[in-house]
Simulated assay, not measured.
Amino acid sequence: MSSLRVHSAQHTVPVAAPAGVVYGLLADAPRWPVLLAPFVHVERVDFDGARENLRLWHLRHGQVCATLAHRTLRPRERRVEFELHDVLLPGVPTSGFWDVEPDGADRCLLTLRHERPAGPFETPEALGTDVRTELVALREAAERWDRLDELLLSFEDSVYVCGSPEIVYDFLYRIEDWVELLPDVEWAEVTEDRPGVQATVLHTCDPETGRTLVSEAVRLCFPAAGRIVHKETVPPDPAAAHYGEWYLEPDETGVRVVSAHQVMLRESTVEAVLGGGARPVDARRYVREWLGRSSTEALNLARWHAENAVRRLR
């Protein structure tokens, strides 16, 4: 009987941020989609203060992978232990830990170790690449720690629809039709190789600057829950990351439709987009207005479709 091969990888990087800040980012997994580039969506299933179960969707070699994670948080040791189960490879878990070691008042050493049974085409080099990618993403987020309040913004827009949640959801799902319906959408391409997992490319026009904004995104569609989450893989400047969600809240007479956004700004592009002397506060205002306008147009059109369908049935 042949023994199961196990690939392991461990890397340590210095981080110019306090150890407590870095551990806090590790522990707060639901915020990862806006902080860490590889992660598309994270849901906390349950949490007792020390142990938690998560559902993770992340990008690996350009593909969306779904994972179940069991984590144990050890704040005293600043360590997070985990076991990951790939949804497509049941019974083949990845285990490991994150470890944060102080290296002075405002610096630390961050270590990530993975151990995974080897797949038929998997190499230690590939696993090492995955580890380094996650480390670099976390380090980049952590080293903005003293400016995160300025660079991160979250907001939402909503409408109430006196109509069918199913019609509203169908409109939000069929994003390829928006080019015919929304004035700012110039071109749209949607690929759905797996049900409910969409890769999109949108060209939209910014009416204030006249420039065409190109965004590439992954969308995860959950029709039973009335939710569509989306993460831009190539967000237009001045956004460094953009994660959002459409969700429906039905009641006895209709449905509240919400568009929620979380955005991380890219400081180095603020002046290039908004002109010399522009500051992050100007970029916050610009992004809020630009995304809010697009969201509101889509929400209002979704309401029009649903409420007109109700009138046609009467």
Rank of each mutant, 00 (worst) to 15 (best):
L274K: 03
R74M: 14
M264T: 09
W304I: 03
T12A: 08
Y173N: 06
V45Y: 06
D103P: 00
A240K: 11
A283R: 13
R311K: 14
L59V: 07
S158E: 12
V234C: 11
P38T: 03
R107Q: 12
S154T: 11
L135Q: 03
L109V: 04
W246T: 01
E101L: 10
C108N: 08
A217Q: 12
A309C: 02
V263E: 05
S158M: 04
E176L: 08
V40D: 08
V136C: 05
V201A: 12
H58R: 09
V255Q: 11
E189F: 04
W290C: 09
L56V: 07
E186T: 04
R211N: 09
D237T: 12
T209L: 07
V45E: 14
L248G: 02
A199P: 07
L148D: 02
G24M: 06
E249D: 14
R211K: 10
H305P: 00
P195Y: 14
V263W: 08
R311T: 10
T12K: 13
P38Q: 07
E150R: 09
H305G: 00
R76G: 13
L56H: 02
S154W: 08
E307H: 01
A9F: 02
I228Y: 12
E81M: 10
R144M: 01
A69I: 05
R132W: 13
L202R: 05
G24E: 09
F82N: 03
N308T: 15
A17K: 06
P165K: 03
A199I: 15
V201R: 15
P165A: 02
R311P: 00
S295Y: 00
S95M: 10
W246P: 01
H11N: 15
V21M: 08
E208S: 09
R5E: 15
E267A: 15
D46G: 04
V190N: 07
E115C: 07
V6W: 15
V287M: 15
H85I: 11
C162R: 15
P235D: 11
L153R: 06
P207H: 13
P250E: 06
V255P: 03
E83L: 12
M1G: 15
P236K: 09
E176W: 04
E307R: 02
R144W: 04
T269E: 13
L109M: 12
V310A: 08
R284I: 01
L248E: 02
L56Y: 04
V287S: 04
E77P: 03
G277Q: 02
G226S: 04
L152V: 03
P33A: 09
M1Q: 11
H70I: 05
L172K: 09
S8A: 13
P93R: 10
T111R: 10
V263P: 00
H261W: 03
G62E: 11
G49D: 02
R78W: 06
P236W: 12
